[in-house]
Computed example of a mutant assay.
Amino acid sequence: MKILVLGGTKEAKTIAEALHSQGLTVVYSLAGVTSAPSPSAGYGTRNGGFGGVDGLVSYLQVQAIDQVVDATHPYAARISQHALQATRQCQVPLYTYQRAAWAPEPGDHWVMAHDWEDIVHKLQAYRRPLFTLGLQPLEKAEDRRADQVWFVRTLPSPDRHPAEGPQLRRIMDQGPFRLSAERALFNEIQPDVLVSKNSGGASVHNKIRVARERGIFVIMLARPPQPKTSGSYTSINTLLDALMG
């Protein structure tokens, strides 16, 4: 059996390694934003997009893929939709894995937002937001109110974004983020609100803890709806049982 794992997360690598260890042929694919497994992993890897739905259909057919596992980031909605459409056309089973979402804990102050426009509306009461949404705030810099200073944390990049400036400050860093480092960041920039995705997992959760400690509100961007597939899982072991059962 040949399985395509759509990755880009720590859990996706774990899934690929587990399937490979059971003697299955695995191809691990990622868009190129995150690091690929080392060549010693033992299974096939590919980098870059497929070229839309048609490109993914062609890949599934040419490579004779038997099953697809979508273990991409919970907010990677485009590739998830492409995977759904392509596997339906090819009649290939599609399984999805998403790490469990965070839930508010005592002392948290969360406000849910459904999209970027909703975030901008909810930001009207604040002047120093810290965004952990990736590049989107830089691309939407025209929505910044004149008296606001935006702090935007993104993955490291050698290129300066044209929107960067005194009122829109980019912080380039990559998780996992230690609790002490998050506390130091909040002390340095003094945000009055945190704008976050509900990514789940432990590696980037400490920002939520620090916001709780400081009594700062969190504008939480809701996850995109999951497509209906052959099976959706938040447990890696349960997913593996379904794939190899």
Results as ranks from 00 to 15, higher is better:
3 I>P: 05
3 I>L: 10
4 L>Y: 12
5 V>A: 15
7 G>Q: 01
7 G>W: 02
9 T>A: 09
10 K>H: 12
11 E>L: 03
14 T>R: 10
15 I>Q: 05
17 E>K: 12
20 H>E: 01
20 H>P: 00
21 S>F: 02
22 Q>W: 02
23 G>A: 08
26 V>Y: 14
29 S>T: 01
30 L>F: 10
34 T>S: 14
35 S>H: 05
37 P>Q: 06
39 P>E: 01
39 P>N: 02
42 G>E: 11
44 G>T: 11
44 G>A: 15
47 N>C: 15
47 N>P: 07
52 G>M: 15
54 D>S: 14
57 V>Y: 02
60 L>F: 13
61 Q>G: 08
62 V>W: 05
62 V>M: 08
62 V>C: 10
63 Q>T: 11
66 D>I: 01
67 Q>I: 11
69 V>P: 01
69 V>G: 05
69 V>R: 09
71 A>C: 01
75 Y>M: 10
75 Y>K: 06
77 A>R: 13
79 I>D: 10
79 I>Y: 06
85 Q>K: 01
86 A>I: 07
87 T>Q: 00
93 P>G: 13
94 L>H: 11
95 Y>F: 15
97 Y>Q: 01
100 A>C: 01
100 A>T: 06
106 P>K: 04
109 H>Q: 15
110 W>V: 10
110 W>E: 05
112 M>K: 11
113 A>G: 05
114 H>T: 14
117 E>C: 03
117 E>W: 02
120 V>Q: 09
120 V>T: 08
123 L>P: 07
124 Q>F: 11
125 A>F: 14
128 R>G: 14
128 R>H: 14
128 R>E: 12
130 L>N: 07
132 T>L: 09
132 T>Y: 04
133 L>M: 06
133 L>G: 05
134 G>P: 00
135 L>P: 00
135 L>E: 13
138 L>Y: 03
138 L>G: 03
138 L>W: 03
139 E>L: 15
139 E>F: 10
140 K>N: 04
141 A>F: 09
141 A>I: 03
144 R>M: 12
147 D>Q: 14
148 Q>M: 02
148 Q>I: 00
150 W>C: 02
151 F>K: 02
153 R>G: 03
154 T>H: 12
154 T>Q: 11
156 P>N: 08
156 P>W: 06
157 S>R: 05
159 D>H: 11
162 P>H: 11
163 A>H: 06
166 P>R: 15
167 Q>I: 04
167 Q>P: 01
168 L>V: 15
168 L>K: 13
169 R>K: 15
174 Q>L: 15
174 Q>G: 05
176 P>H: 11
180 S>G: 10
180 S>A: 15
187 N>A: 15
188 E>M: 01
189 I>K: 06
190 Q>P: 00
190 Q>L: 12
195 V>P: 04
197 K>A: 04
200 G>Q: 07
200 G>K: 06
202 A>Q: 05
205 H>K: 05
205 H>M: 09
208 I>G: 02
209 R>S: 12
210 V>N: 05
211 A>L: 02
212 R>Q: 10
212 R>F: 04
215 G>A: 12
216 I>E: 13
217 F>E: 11
221 L>A: 07
221 L>Y: 06
222 A>Y: 03
225 P>Y: 12
228 K>G: 05
229 T>S: 13
231 G>Q: 14
231 G>P: 06
232 S>V: 03
233 Y>E: 09
234 T>F: 13
234 T>R: 09
236 I>R: 00
238 T>W: 09
242 A>D: 06
243 L>D: 10
244 M>V: 14
